[in-house]
Amino acid sequence: MVRVVIGCSVKAYLPKNGKVYSLKEMIGHGSGFFVNSNGYIVTNAHVTNLTPEECQQYLLQELAVKLKDDGEDFDTVKQQLKWIEAKPIYQVKLPNGESLPFQVLKSGAVFDQGKDVSIIKVDVRNAPVLKLADSSKVQVLDKVIAVGYPGLIERSNIFDKKSLLEATFTSGEISALKTLKDNIPVIQVSAPAAPGNSGGPVLNEVKLLA
C-alpha cells in the first residue's frame, strides 16, 4: 500500500513590477498499491489527473495574497500575468516514510466519464505486490476488506506522523454486482471508505479483487 500525493508548482511573472511569483502546494492524496515489484502502482484516475490549468486555478488565491503584499490588486493585474510554469507534483509515500516521485504511465477518466483507473510508476525494486484475483468469481455477500489512507488522518492535527504512514482497514461484504451504462462491470461493496481511500485495494480473504 502507498499514499499517492499530488500538488502543484507554478511561476507567474508580473511585468509591472518585474517580479516572478513562485508557488508550491500539495493539494490532495489518494491510495494505491503495487501490482509489480518493479514499481508499477494502480490507483484511481481522479487521484492523478491534474492539468496545468487546474494548477493555476488551485493557486490563484495564494497568488492574490502575495500580490496584495506587494501592493498589487489581483483583479487589476491578472490580465498582465505571464505564466512561466504550471505543473503537477506527483509523489508516492511509502509505508516506511520514504517519498518518491512518480510518473503517470496510463490514465483513464473520472468515474462518470470512463474507467477511473491510473497506472503510475516509481523507481523502486523488489516492491511487495498484491496478487490480483479473478473478479468473475466474486459472489454477493462475500466478505471483503477495503484498505486505504482516509483524508481525515492527514487533515487532523491530533494524530502523530506515524499514523500518516499506516493504512486503515474496514470490513464489509459484496453487496451487489452491477453494470454501468457503457457495459463496464462494477462490484459494489459495503466496506466503509472515506475521501483519501480512492485508489486503494479491496481484498477478499486471500487476494485482491481485480
Rank of each mutant, 00 (worst) to 15 (best):
K131Q: 11
K162P: 03
S136F: 13
R155H: 11
K162T: 14
I153Y: 15
I145M: 06
A127N: 06
P150T: 07
L130I: 08
V138H: 01
F159I: 08
A146M: 03
A127K: 07
A127P: 05
V147K: 04
A146W: 01
P128G: 11
N157Q: 14
V147W: 01
E154V: 04
K131C: 05
V129K: 09
A133F: 03
A127H: 02
F159Y: 15
L132E: 06
D142K: 08
I145C: 04
G148N: 00
L141F: 11
L141D: 12
D134Y: 05
P128S: 14
D160L: 00
I158M: 14
I153G: 13
A127C: 08
N157P: 09
A133D: 13
K143E: 05
K143M: 07
G151P: 03
I153E: 12
A127E: 05
A146D: 01
Q139C: 08
S156E: 09
V144E: 01
L130T: 06
V138D: 05
D160P: 01
P128Q: 12
S135C: 11
S135M: 09
L130D: 05
L132G: 08
L132V: 04
I158R: 15
Q139N: 13
K131P: 00
N157F: 09
R155C: 06
N157I: 08
K137G: 07
V138Q: 10
K161F: 07
V129D: 05
V144F: 00
Q139A: 13
R155E: 10
S156N: 05
D142P: 04
K137R: 13
I145L: 07
I145D: 04
E154T: 10
P128W: 08
L152H: 13
L132T: 05
A146I: 02
D142S: 13
V138N: 03
D134C: 06
I145F: 02
K162N: 14
P128I: 13
K131H: 03
V144S: 00
L130K: 07
K131W: 03
D160H: 00
G148L: 01
V138C: 05
V138F: 03
P150I: 06
V140S: 12
F159V: 10
